[in-house]
């Protein structure tokens, strides 16, 4: 058994993590001790929204089309991890490995280019909604009793 185990090099990280946790617990406890515990009037405890009455829950729904950016980030993340693995090795100077890296990056960049090209077709923006709405309205006004439209 070798003596230079890997986790011995990470003992400062462990000490630092324990310090961070202890510090956060101390801060939370201190703010709990120091804050007033007598119930204030309801104006003070209510959510402050610039003088407005808060309406509805705070957790609202965002448009779905935002998730595509997170997915692009995850794919770039995985690509970066693979390139990081390559960058610590001297075989990256080998021409065959360089060509492999080139193909790898080209494939992923092609996918991202495809996603960026078709990104406008995945979300419905305001202008497009307006045009579709106007076209549908005009079509409806032309023949209000088209087949399939009666209830």
């Amino acid at each position: 058994m070798q003596t230079d185990r890997l986790f011995l090099q990470f003992i400062p990280v462990l000490v630092w993590a324990i310090l961070v946790i202890v510090l956060i617990v101390i801060m939370l406890l201190a703010s709990w001790v120091l804050r007033p515990h007598i119930l204030q009037n309801s104006e003070k405890t209510s959510t402050y929204e610039c003088g407005e009455e808060p309406i509805g829950p705070a957790r609202m729904s965002f448009p779905y089309s935002y998730i595509i950016y997170t997915i692009l980030f995850v794919i770039i993340d995985v690509m970066g991890a693979f390139l990081w693995l390559l960058s610590v090795s001297p075989i990256r100077l080998n021409p065959i490995i360089a060509w492999q890296t080139f193909i790898f990056v080209i494939i992923i960049m092609g996918g991202i280019g495809y996603a960026m090209k078709y990104l406008p077709q995945t979300s419905l923006d305001g202008q497009e909604t307006l045009e579709a709405y106007r076209a549908a309205k005009a079509r409806h006004l032309e023949k209000p009793h088209a087949p399939g439209r009666e209830h």
């Binding site: 779905y64 089309s65 595509i68 997915i71 692009l72 794919i75 995985v78 690509m79 693979f82 693995l85 390559l86 090795s89 075989i91 990256r92 080998n94 490995i97 492999q100 890296t101 193909i103 790898f104 494939i107 992923i108 092609g110 996918g111 991202i112 495809y114 996603a115 078709y118 995945t122 979300s123």
Partner: peptide, 26 residues
């Protein structure tokens, strides 16, 4: 990367396939 370089390309293809699937679903 050196001995089993095909795996890396397969991972790239899996990533691109997931991206194309996401675009089609959206």
């Amino acid at each position: 990367w050196g001995d089993h370089g095909v795996y890396v390309q397969i991972v790239a293809l899996i990533m691109v396939t997931a991206l194309v699937g996401v675009i089609a679903l959206m």
